[in-house]
Amino acid sequence: MEDQFVGREGNEIHVVTFQVEGGWFGISVNHVLRIEPLGRFPVTRMPRVPDMVEGIINYRGEIFPLIHVRRFFGLDRLTYTENTSVIMVVNEEERIGFIVDEIPEAHVLPTLGMEDFSRRGGTMLDLEHVQCLCKDEDHLVVVMDVGSLLRQLDVAAKTG
């Protein structure tokens, strides 16, 4: 419904933002089911899964695999704290949890024009997983495209 605004100059978007190694990333609120502290759930380890998969949790009768975002970006894990949180994402029938090091925040941010960006300089960038770019005060927020992200994760899980 709100996807129609994506990529257009002057629109606003509700995003849940989190920080990884100095960079700001966001996920559209429409794909977010809940945000919970990781310590609230017991994590069950799974065999023969990629390194970025932390395990699975049972949240209100539904199974959520947990992806460690830093491992997903190719970074080392940090020690879990009481602020380590899980962003529970829903895309159609798929369920997945992203482990982030800080409690995320919810913002209404203005979007930047993606079309001009794609045409003028984005060709050299892989913008497949990027839904749009937002401006928050003095920094930009990369809003991830959850659908393409989940597809890539499927491929990565199957290839090992």
């Binding site: 609120v29 429409n30 977010v32 945000i35 919970e36 602020n83 919810a106």
Partner: peptide, 17 residues
């Protein structure tokens, strides 16, 4: 307060939805 924080965050998300 941290629980309230998370709760308010979820509430915000729900409200947006």
């Amino acid at each position: 307060s941290s629980q309230t924080d998370v709760l308010a965050l979820n509430a915000t998300i729900e409200a947006v939805k």
